[in-house]
Amino acid sequence: MKTVLITGASGFVGQALAQKYLDAGWQVNGLGTSLNHPMADANDHFFWTSADTSRPGDWQALVAQSDVIVNLAGRNIFKPWTEAYKKAIYDSRIQTTKNLVDAMPGTFYGQLINASAAGFYGDRGDTPLTETEASGIGFLARVCRDWEAQAKRATSKGATVAVMRFGVVLGSGGGALDVMARAFRMFVGGPLGSGDQWFPWIHMDDLVRGVFFLMEHNAQGIYNFTGLVPIRQKEFAKELGRALHRPAFMPAPAFFIRLFMGQLGSSFLCSQKVLPAALETAGFRFKYDTVDRALTQIFKSGNTK
Rank of each mutant, 00 (worst) to 15 (best):
R142N: 11
K234W: 07
T281D: 08
N36V: 11
W48K: 01
R182K: 15
G11Y: 00
V163A: 08
I69V: 13
A248F: 10
A254G: 14
G171L: 03
P276M: 12
L279P: 01
F213I: 04
D146H: 08
Q65A: 13
I257E: 00
I202N: 00
I89W: 10
G122L: 08
L240Q: 01
A219M: 10
E216T: 08
G122S: 08
V143K: 01
F268L: 15
P56K: 13
L22C: 10
F78S: 10
L269G: 04
V161Q: 00
A252E: 02
D206V: 09
M1N: 05
E131P: 12
A237Y: 03
F268R: 00
Q15I: 06
W81S: 01
K20D: 12
G136I: 07
T97D: 04
D178E: 15
D67N: 13
A61Y: 08
G110S: 00
A40D: 14
A237M: 02
K79N: 11
G171S: 04
V68T: 10
A243L: 12
D52W: 05
Q27D: 12
Y109M: 03
A159Y: 00
S194Y: 09
D178F: 13
N99G: 06
A252P: 01
L170D: 00
M215W: 01
A16D: 06
A103I: 02
M104W: 06
R93T: 04
V229M: 05
C270P: 01
V70S: 01
L112F: 04
V169T: 04
G171K: 00
A181H: 07
D44Q: 14
S54L: 06
H245P: 13
W26F: 14
K2W: 04
P56A: 15
I298T: 04
K238H: 12
D23E: 14
S66L: 06
D292P: 03
M204S: 01
F199V: 00
F286W: 04
D52G: 04
V161E: 00
K300D: 15
N76L: 04
R185D: 15
G283T: 03
A181V: 10
M104I: 07
G32Y: 04
F199M: 08
I231L: 07
K234Y: 07
G122T: 09
A64E: 11
L35R: 15
L244P: 13
L264V: 09
H217S: 13
L244G: 08
G221V: 10
Q233T: 07
F108M: 02
G119H: 10
A134G: 12
P276G: 11
G158T: 03
F46C: 03
D178V: 06
D67M: 03
K273F: 04
A243Q: 10
V274P: 06
A248C: 12
S156Y: 09
D123H: 10
I6T: 01
R55T: 11
T33P: 09
A118R: 00
P38W: 10
W81E: 01
F187A: 11
F212V: 07
I257T: 06
V208C: 09
